[in-house]
Structures are given as C-alpha cells and as structure tokens.
Design a protein around this nucleic acid. Sequence first.
RNA 1: GGCCCCAUCGUCUAGAGGCCUAGGACAUCGGAUUUUCAGUCCGAGUACUGGGGUUCGAAUCCCCAUGGGGUCACCA
Length: 568
Amino acid sequence: MRRKSLNFREKGGQAPTRLGASPRFSAGRFSTAGRVTRLYLKKSTCSMTRPVRTRFAPSPTGYMHIGGMRTALFAWLWARHTGGTFILRVDDTDQERNVEAALGPIFRAFEWLGLTWDEGPKVGGSFEPYYQSQRSHLYRAAVDQLLVTGRAFKDFDPPELIAEDRKQAEAAKRTWVNVRRSLELSDDERKRLEETGRPFVVRFLIPRDQKIAIDDAVRGHVEWDCSLMPDPVIMRSNGSFLYNFATVVDDAQMEITHIIRAEEHLANTPVQALIHKALDNPMPVFAHIPFITAPGSTKKMSKRDVDKLRNSPQLKKLFDRADEVFPQLGIGDSKTLNPVMVEYYERLGYLPAGILNALSRLGWSLDGTTEFMSLDDVVKNFTLERIVKAAAGFDPEKLQSFQQHWMNQLPLEDKIVGCLPFLIKTGLVPDQPDDEDRSNVGRVIAAVADRLRVFSDILDYKEFFVADESMTFDQKPFQQRLRDAPEARGLLTAIRDQLATVTPYDATTLDKLVHDFTESNGIKIGQIVHALRVAVTGKSAGVGLFDALAILGRDRSLVRIERALSQI
RNA sequence: GGCCCCAUCGUCUAGAGGCCUAGGACAUCGGAUUUUCAGUCCGAGUACUGGGGUUCGAAUCCCCAUGGGGUCACCA
C-alpha cells in the first residue's frame, strides 16, 4: 500500500516541489527518547521551493541495463513532469581506460528511447564537469571542510588492525563499529604520524548518539540508529574518494532535489543523509524505487546471471530470437546482446514506445485500468506517489503485448522505414531501394499486417524477397500438402491454368477465382489452399494466400507453382 | 547473523475502513470468426501469507509470526 507519508503528493502540474514543507519534517518527530537529537537542519525544515533537478549516474559498463534504464526513466519522468531538469553524470571513479567507448551504448540507449538529458556529457551545463573522475577538487574541498569542522577524522589504524577488530566483534556476535583510536591521539601525536608519512584514511564521524531518518518518497518514514553504524571511509589512503561520499558532494553541488534510484541504495542512505547534514546541504528528497526482478525469480535481474536467465522459460524465446536474427545482421548472437541490455531491443527492431510503455508500468501505474500510454501520457501523469513499493518482475510477454499495440498504431510508411534496414542488411533489398522496392516492401508489410510485432519480424517473410529459383520449400509441409496429398498435383495444375489468364491479378479476384474453382470441382477449399500456399511461399503458414499471390504477381506465382510441380 | 525494505490472481497491478460477491491487463484454458498463422470477438478459472488485536464493519489500521529481498569494503 502506498500513500500516507508522502509529503509532496502531487497537486497536479508544474508546481515546483516544496521541500520539507510538511509537518512530517518537523524536528523532533522521531524523538522517541530524550537522547535523540533533532534531525533536520534549518535549511531543510524551512519551507523552501527549488526547481526539480533529478539525475541518473551510470558507470561506464559498456552496455545499458534494462533495469537501470527503468530507473533512469523514472528520474527523467519526474523531471519532465515537473518541468524540471534531468542530469546525466558519469560515475567513472574507477578510471577505466576507455570510458568513452564504454559509455557509447549508454548514450545510445537514451537517444534511441528519446530520453534527452539537459545537463551532462555532450550537452554540458553549468555544473561541469559531469564526470566524477574530473571532480576530485570538489571532493577534496568537502573532505577538508569536514575535517575542519570536526565531522571527519584521519584514521591511522592499519587495515590489519581494523580487520582484527572486526573479527573479534564477529566472534562476540556484536555489531561491528570501528574503534576510534585515532580520535584519541593528541595533536602532537597526530602531527608526528603525518610527518612520518604514516598512511591514513579519512573517516566521516558518525554521530552515534543520534538517529537518522528520511522521508522517502516511496517508502515513507525510514529511520536508523546511528550507534550501529561504523564511521565510513570517505577518502582512501591513496587520496581517492569513495562513491558514497562523491555522490553526496555531487548531488549537492549539482543542486539535485530528488534522488530517484534503485532500492538497493536504501542502505547507503543514512550515511549519505548524515554527510549532507554535516556539509550543511539542503536535504534532497529520496525516492527508492523497487528493482526489477528476473522473470520467474525474486532476485534482482543482473547481467551476471545471464546464463541462468537463458534457461528461464520466460526468457528463452528472447534468447532464441537473438540467435536467429543477430547472425543474419552480422552483429553476433545472444551472447553479444541479450535481453537485459537495452540495445538488444533496439537491434531487434522494437519500438521505443513499446519499451517505454512496458518500463513505465513496471512499478508504476496510472490507475487500475490504463495500460497503453505514450511517453507524453506518462509524463503528464507521472507522480512519485504512485510508485509501487514491491519489486516487480520483468515480464517479456507483457512487453510483447505493449510492443504489439504500438506497432499496430504505426502508419504503413513508418513500418516501411523501420523494416527497410533489416531487409537491406540481409541483402533482400538493395542498398539504395528505389520506389519499386519500397512499394513492394509496403505491399508485403500491409499483407503481414499485425503479424509484424517488431521490425525484424519482416525477416520471417523472406519468401517475398528472394528469387523464385532460390526459394526453399519447407520439407514437412511440402511432403504433407504436395507429395502425400494424392489430388494435389492435379489441382495445382488446374489452378495454375486459371491463374495464367485471370484478370485482374489481385487478391479480391483471386479469392473469388479459387472459391469458384472449389465449387466447380466439388472440393473443399482446404484441399487447394494449402497446396497452393506451399507451392508459392514454401511455407505452411504466413500471410493470406491471396495477398501472397497478388504480391508475387502472375509471372512469379506461375514460376513457383511450376517449380513445386517439378519437385513433387 | 545485524540493520533495513517488501508481501493482493502464474505475472504487472487497482484498492486511502463499508462502494469488494476484490476490478483491469498480460499469460492460460474454452468457444466463435477464418484458407494457414496471427489477429479479433465472447466466455472461464485463478489472489488479499498466517495469527492476534482495534472497529458495528479490515485486503485496507496496529502487533506478532512467517516468507521473500536488499545491504553490511580503502566496490560502485
């Protein structure tokens, strides 16, 4: 269930979000014991409105995870819904060699889906740079500030000693918190240690006599007892900074108002909130959205278990499809691109509208009945309040149904544009298709109609694009409908003669012709239709037979029938 | 294990104490339409984790239990 503690429940529209305006934020609300200190600083308790700014901070991993995309989408939606700003910031503190290359697929995914960012790589912005690796000076300054104000301290304890402490705590079944030996040092001792070059880390000093609470936009009130929290390292002994710290500095510096991220970060939040407080930052609103679980699983979907996913019955079809289609396109197979990657869907010819619709409905709903929504619809109606708390399973079937819906909405011309690249890449249509090629493709797509779910499905209708001599007959139906059906040969020959002369050669006329044919021969329609279908398309299933004949035209139909006859 | 989060059909969800005999969608299963496949139309089955409270009344509020998950780094 939701509702209750949502202090910034939408009152509709573009109003800037009021931060901390509700009594929920009033200090002392969580003071169950006298000891508990007030939790919110003046800055966050005073009524203050800031324009909404949300962010997504991907690491350059070389691909865009579908679950990450959903998280990004929600952050983007909130920014767009409120008329705010959406920021992309690269978490590259790992300093990988080729950040740009590893970022490519990520930008590509955003661009494909049409999720534009207002600030970040490529577009810049007033809080540059947007790469964490280039922002060390800011982290450095923040560390210094905390050191000066006594909210952080240099810890000279060697890692082995800490490990020992931890082991002991574990043995005694105590919750481990670091021992603050370095805090006991006199100024002289500390100075001496530093002068001798003794390595140290900087730890943030947790106020252990407090509790820390947040009012999460989806989870409501969540609070932690600081006495159980170790002082987190914020700067390593080599002078680099930890994510948990850098992200706080960045969020504050970039004036992020709403931190919309996956639920797994909830556990990081008390430390981050505490650091925000210590830095005297306005407290952002946190919104921890549920993560997406793999189909048939309760665990979050990750690329680490792709092999497990491969065997899941729900996902098997998607993997198989990749293995069928990608090799034809020369882009590997399901090992190169799999269904946890956004690019998988792009390359297969899914529609942004389909993916976006499916992703929006995972952990969010407009009401009890609305399923199909355009991105604009979702932007208009998106509120944090309606985000569901429980984890949601990714359902490929449902995605398929969204995809199908949006594909059916598409005008023929757009379908042609979408299918053409697949036909060109597989050599079924020339690189520079002329009007004739295009209209032929259009006729096929029109006949394929709603059998076309994703653009690459057009590759299932190769028979209309290959030369008559190189079309293959599927063995099973050929056997069943032509060889094993005693009357097939005679009927096929007879209908061939009629097809040779009928005019015009269009679906309606052919339909009538075949029906008349069955009547005058006293046969059932099934007796001729199946044989004829296999003869001209090589397959037992596909577009309507009369459409198929009309697309092929008289000459090609006759050639194909002749060829089938000769192989019976 | 500590801390934290979560819990309605197989799945995504609706549900703000009486509109609930629990609604919608996907999937499934029937039936109809049809030249195949797909589609479309009609119909069916399937859920409030359990136990205690509060209340005239609980899916909804409270407590406990159970189950699931996340997180516990000089990772991000």
